[in-house]
Simulated scan of single mutants.
Amino acid sequence: MKYTLGTAVLGISALLGSTAFAQDNTLTINSFGGAYETAHRACIITPFEAATGAKVNVVTAYSADAFAQLRAQKDAPQFDVIHFSGGQEIVGAAEGLLAPIDPASLSNAADLYDFAKANLDKGQGPAYSIAAIGLVFNTEAVTTPPTQWTDLLNPDYSEHLVLTDISNAYGMLGFLMLNQVQGGDLTNIQPGLDAVGKLLDAGAVVVSTSPEIQQEFAQNDAWIAPYASDYAFTLRNAGLPSGFAQGAEGTPASFITTNLVAGRPNNELALKLIDMSISPEAQQCFADALRYSPTNTKTELSPEVAADVAYGEAGVAGLIRFDPAAIEANRTAWVEEWNKAIAR
């Protein structure tokens, strides 16, 4: 079933009921701008406002910037709900910037996969979408879809492979997975660096941004790139034949979380917004619009959309979340080593 604004309003009207809110009927949240923010408004914000009469003020701020604002405003935070895609909720919860959530306060919490609600009591908000990192490929040039991360080493792909710089969050996750299948881990990235060196020697290229990936597929005969599931959809919308495959060894995942900010007066209203974010209707809408993977077990996707994401028990079973705190602690040193490896 196609998710529409009308079904959103009906769905969350039943969810939210006619509760009268004692506090100011306004929430301030962040969103990530661009196509993401457009979908965020269509799938959650606008239906929420329509169903509750509340006003949601949106500050466009990516995860790192939003977290910096939250820290700076510790004694008087502006956000009621804050969204992260880089694991900042782990640090924010430890620093007391985020409030614990009682699962009983969320009607949809019971339907989430366990990994999406693992640390609510610690202040880490639920994951409401997943950006799955796998193998984006040209469906016309690659007639047999890749099935594992080691396929990146296939000599047939040598001059048609696009790697993404690890200054890019998705590039980092793809590199860490390549490192893992080559025998490395978060304490040793040398196997991954060695593999990257060999791939570059064989003809692979490195880009820094998503638009550069599209340019390589459109103009420079790129066939395959380790990147996020939503980007295969982006390429296809641009008229390029593309598909997405999860590697059998595992699927690195960027968790997009919705978090309750500590020290704010509108917790009841904020929790209703969080609850809507983890509803199957909202998650179906995000998957349809952007090809993010749902975390609610009751989310129903069309076969076309399901083929582009990590979906269902089997699809999410292979999700891997590399420790965001370890990534952040090592990022500067890793980027330095990466830059040495690709300087050729």
Rank of each mutant, 00 (worst) to 15 (best):
I101N: 09
Q88F: 14
V91H: 05
P103D: 09
D111C: 00
A94D: 12
I101T: 09
L97P: 00
A99P: 04
A110W: 06
A110V: 08
A109Y: 06
I90A: 10
N119I: 01
K117A: 01
A118C: 06
D114S: 15
G92D: 09
Q88S: 11
L98A: 05
E89N: 15
A94Y: 03
E95Y: 00
A109L: 03
A116Y: 07
N108G: 06
A104W: 10
E95W: 06
A94I: 05
L98P: 03
L98T: 00
L98M: 11
S105T: 15
A94K: 15
K117F: 00
I90Q: 03
I101K: 06
D111E: 12
I90V: 13
L106I: 07
F115M: 05
S107F: 00
I90D: 03
A93S: 12
L112E: 09
A99R: 13
A99E: 14
E89A: 13
L112I: 09
L112Y: 13
L98C: 08
Y113N: 12
P103H: 11
L112V: 14
L98S: 04
P103G: 05
P103R: 08
N108A: 07
N108M: 08
D111Y: 11
P103M: 05
N108C: 05
G87D: 11
A110E: 13
V91K: 14
L106Y: 12
G96F: 07
L106W: 10
F115A: 00
A118Q: 15
A104T: 15
G87F: 03
L106N: 13
A99L: 06
I101H: 11
L112H: 07
A109W: 09
F115V: 02
G92Q: 02
P100F: 09
A104Y: 10
A116S: 10
A118H: 04
A99K: 15
K117I: 00
N108Y: 03
D111F: 04
D102V: 02
D111N: 15
P100S: 04
G87P: 01
E95N: 04
A99Y: 11
L112F: 07
E89G: 13
I90Y: 14
A118R: 07
N119C: 02
P100D: 06
L106S: 09
S105A: 14
S105P: 00
A94T: 09
N119P: 08
S105W: 07
E89Y: 11
G87A: 11
G96Q: 08
P103F: 00
A94N: 10
Y113K: 01
G92C: 12
L97E: 03
A93W: 01
A104S: 12
A109C: 02
A109G: 09
L112M: 14
A93F: 02
A93N: 00
A110D: 10
G96W: 02
L106K: 12
A99N: 08
N119Y: 10
G92S: 08
G96I: 08
L112A: 10
L106V: 11
A99G: 07
Y113L: 04
V91D: 13
K117R: 15
S105Y: 07
P100W: 08
E89D: 14
A110M: 04
S107N: 12
A104Q: 15
L106G: 14
A94Q: 14
F115Q: 02
L97I: 11
V91R: 11
A110G: 10
A118G: 05
L98G: 03
Q88K: 07
